[in-house]
């Protein structure tokens, strides 16, 4: 019973891939932003570093998206 529920939850989770990506990106940001924070010292506040991290990851995602457009333009 419980295992069935877990399977269902897992399947739903797999189907919703965009939230998954978003979640992974935020996890990544946790690591990324901390590093930047450590490296820059006092220049940025903690929240600014997180915002910058999200912006950086967003930029990388846009870049990947543009590569997809370049190599599979038929999809767009």
């Amino acid at each position: 019973m419980i295992s069935e529920n877990l399977v269902t939850i897992w399947q739903v989770w797999c189907r919703r891939k965009y939230p998954t990506y978003l979640f992974l990106a935020l996890c990544l940001n946790l690591v990324f932003a901390s590093t930047v924070f450590a490296a820059t010292g006092d220049a940025f506040s903690r929240s600014q570093v997180y915002a910058l991290g999200v912006l950086g990851i967003g930029t990388v995602c846009l870049s990947i998206y543009l590569f997809v457009v370049m190599f599979q333009p038929e999809r767009f």
Binding site: Q48, A51, L55, L62, Y65
Partner: peptide, 29 residues
Amino acid sequence: AVGNPVMFLVWVGTIVTFLVTLDPNLFGT
């Protein structure tokens, strides 16, 4: 919007500038 890469970028840019309109210090003082 994702179907038009150039405009999609402008659209995302709009959101970013909207955020810094709300808080100009969002990405750095």
